Simulated scan of single mutants.
Amino acid sequence: MQKNTEEKKGWHMLEMEIGITTSRGNWYRITRDGINKYVPGLLEEISLEKIIRTADIWLESGNGLALVLFFILSLSGTDPYLSGAIALMFYQICYWNVSLFSFLFLTPLVRLLNNDGILYVSQGLVLAYFSYSSMFTAFWVGVVIFLLLKVRILGLLTDWFADKFIKIKLPRTDRLLNMILIRYGMSEGKLTGDMQRMEDDLIRIANYHRKGKSEKK
């Protein structure tokens, strides 16, 4: 059984028997029934769409925030190569620790800073300034950083590296969603389910799908 839910601006999610996938390419290995079971009553207060949308926003937060950091450092006079290196290191910190930083009250700000329209316009203005000011090193470093972050090249490479060499028990998407559920549950006073059991189930399902992929190879 599948259920397609749409929101404004083209974002949508698709509920399946094995989990939830979104138009941003993220897959969460838990269902509506699973959330109802482990955080009883939460979906009566917070819609599933809002929960998954929040998770999507935070999953992509590193891209926009690292790009904004590069803009700020470069415009403040920091060496372009150093600015780029700091931005890429910041992205990695966000990638591996996003579940720790995903505070719900910051979600609107993160969503704004990661908005495609704002980032594209900002990138164009900053690069135009670099070109006009003959800051060609900053210009080309900025182009590379933009491609790595906003086109998600760095994210795809990091995903591949994590899956190939680190073999984490619980995928990044599910670790983040687990934390989002905990925080929403605490804010609504609904955190009465067995969250450890939910995490164990997520690990079991993730390992099942990983094993299936290995067998196909």
Rank of each mutant, 00 (worst) to 15 (best):
K3L: 14
K3V: 13
T5A: 07
T5N: 07
K9A: 12
H12Y: 12
H12T: 09
M13A: 07
L14T: 14
L14C: 12
L14A: 08
E17Y: 03
T22I: 02
N26K: 07
I30V: 15
R32N: 09
R32I: 04
G34S: 10
G34W: 04
I35E: 05
I35A: 08
N36K: 11
N36L: 07
N36Y: 01
K37W: 03
K37R: 15
V39I: 14
S47Y: 03
E49W: 02
E49M: 14
K50S: 12
R53C: 02
T54G: 08
T54S: 13
A55Q: 01
E60T: 11
N63D: 14
V68M: 09
L69F: 10
L69T: 15
I72W: 04
L73H: 05
L73A: 04
S74E: 10
L75I: 13
G77W: 03
D79R: 05
P80W: 02
Y81I: 15
S83C: 06
G84K: 04
G84W: 01
M89Y: 09
Y91V: 03
Q92G: 05
Q92Y: 09
Q92T: 06
Y95H: 09
N97E: 11
N97K: 13
F101W: 11
F101N: 01
F101R: 00
S102L: 04
P108G: 07
P108T: 06
L109G: 05
L113D: 08
N114T: 15
N115Y: 14
G117P: 05
S122T: 13
Y129V: 05
F130K: 04
Y132C: 02
Y132D: 14
S134F: 13
M135V: 00
F136H: 14
T137R: 08
T137A: 09
T137E: 14
W140M: 12
G142C: 04
V143W: 11
F146N: 11
F146V: 08
F146H: 15
L148T: 02
L149V: 04
R152H: 08
R152S: 09
I153M: 09
L154P: 00
L154M: 12
L156G: 08
L157V: 13
T158R: 03
T158P: 00
D159E: 11
D159C: 00
D159H: 10
A162H: 04
D163E: 14
K164H: 07
I168C: 10
L170S: 06
R175L: 11
R175E: 10
R175M: 10
R175F: 02
L177D: 01
L177R: 01
L177C: 04
R183W: 10
G185T: 07
G185Y: 02
G185D: 05
M186W: 10
M186V: 15
G189M: 07
G193T: 06
D194T: 06
D194N: 15
Q196C: 02
R197Q: 15
M198Q: 09
E199K: 12
I203M: 10
R204F: 13
R204I: 07
I205H: 04
N207L: 12
N207S: 14
K211F: 07
K211W: 08
E215H: 10
K216G: 04
K217L: 15
